[in-house]
Measured scan of single mutants.
Amino acid sequence: MKHYEVEILDAKTREKLCFLDKVEPHATIAEIKNLFTKTHPQWYPARQSLRLDPKGKSLKDEDVLQKLPVGTTATLYFRDLGAQISWVTVFLTEYAGPLFIYLLFYFRVPFIYGHKYDFTSSRHTVVHLACICHSFHYIKRLLETLFVHRFSHGTMPLRNIFKNCTYYWGFAAWMAYYINHPLYTPPTYGAQQVKLALAIFVICQLGNFSIHMALRDLRPAGSKTRKIPYPTKNPFTWLFLLVSCPNYTYEVGSWIGFAIMTQCLPVALFSLVGFTQMTIWAKGKHRSYLKEFRDYPPLRMPIIPFLL
């Protein structure tokens, strides 16, 4: 059985960083990364991007050496992705923050609204209902991160945790300040508006959870398998008939419901920014589905049925 020789060059300087002799033909890129780490321990596998061309796409960890368009002496180019952190850690951090930050404003801890309001309670029912909904949303997200989601990528750049936390924590503080303010004004149409908004919120939260469970069942634990998601017997998953990412559709719907319930401008802005970002993600995933699966359902749109 022939063996391969693998040289790894710096993608920027073309400097030879490592030479691997007698590499098995069936070795994966993940195994080559581990061998590279032995000579350069500062670059652990998650930091490494190996590619066939200095400006090309990163090879997948599961790619097999003998199936790549290389000879028995293969040249790979290395790029440092920077310090990495696990997706689970990032999600837990960015979701735990809003949960606790919101509660600080809800309980009106000292130095927020003035001494005479310390630890007082709002007289408006919608304020307490909003706290329950907000807390439920982020507790749900935390539990899904721990027990439901299966991540195709193990890590992301460390800098992302600061960007994500600034976004989630900042908006949580902004909306919580106004919703729990002693001078907060309840919704214009009173109980009817709150009940309608609560119904929207609850339905969308159930829908979002149902989609996450359906997506989880598509991917076996520990794998990166991708399949076309289809509706199940659960009615909340029937939205798969019309959109590629109904989890985002339901998520946006939840925040629209919360915005109607609280009639709070920061919540509306958070919903708008979230919708914009999720639309970008949904379009990317939709394109990926179309590219990977020739039999992908043609009627589906990325996030909004028939429109977007």
Rank of each mutant, 00 (worst) to 15 (best):
L9G: 09
F111Y: 11
R123A: 11
P297Y: 00
L272K: 02
H128G: 08
L9V: 04
H134E: 06
M301W: 06
T75F: 01
F100T: 00
V70E: 12
I303T: 06
L239S: 01
L35E: 06
M156K: 01
E15C: 06
A191W: 00
W43M: 02
L307F: 02
C204G: 06
L50S: 06
F201V: 07
L52P: 07
H115V: 02
I8F: 05
M261I: 08
R226G: 14
E144V: 03
Y178L: 06
L142F: 15
Q193H: 12
P229R: 13
K22P: 12
T185F: 14
F209L: 11
Y113L: 04
L50P: 08
T276I: 08
G207R: 02
R141F: 14
R219Q: 07
Y106P: 00
Y4H: 09
V148A: 06
C18R: 10
Y77W: 15
S254L: 04
L143R: 09
R123K: 08
F78K: 06
R287G: 09
L272P: 03
F91T: 02
W255C: 05
S254C: 05
K22A: 12
I139R: 15
A172D: 09
W43V: 03
F119M: 15
P229K: 07
L9P: 05
V109I: 02
P157D: 15
R150L: 08
Q84N: 04
Y167N: 00
H137K: 09
K60L: 08
V267F: 04
G170R: 04
F171K: 04
R287F: 01
H212A: 02
D63T: 05
K283Q: 11
P235H: 03
Y113K: 15
A83Q: 05
Y178A: 05
P182Q: 01
K57G: 08
Y4R: 01
H3K: 05
G56A: 07
L65P: 09
R79C: 13
K224A: 06
R294Q: 08
R216E: 15
K22E: 09
N234Y: 12
Y296G: 06
L307M: 09
R123N: 00
G170D: 03
L242Q: 06
L183P: 04
R79P: 09
G207T: 15
L198R: 07
I85L: 13
R287L: 10
G207L: 03
I132S: 05
L242T: 14
Y289H: 11
K33S: 01
K22D: 07
T232P: 10
I139F: 12
V6A: 10
A268V: 11
K22C: 02
L103G: 06
L183R: 13
Y189R: 14
I228T: 11
K55W: 08
T188A: 10
T232A: 10
F306I: 11
F119I: 14
K2F: 11
L290V: 08
W169M: 00
A221S: 12
P305L: 03
I132G: 07
L99M: 05
T155N: 03
W255S: 04
F306L: 09
V267W: 00
L218H: 05
F19A: 07
F91D: 00
A282S: 06
H115R: 10
P235R: 07
S135F: 00
T89M: 10
I32A: 04
H115Q: 09
H153Y: 11
M213A: 09
N164V: 01
K12R: 10
I29W: 08
W281C: 04
V243I: 15
A30R: 09
F100V: 10
S135V: 02
L68Q: 01
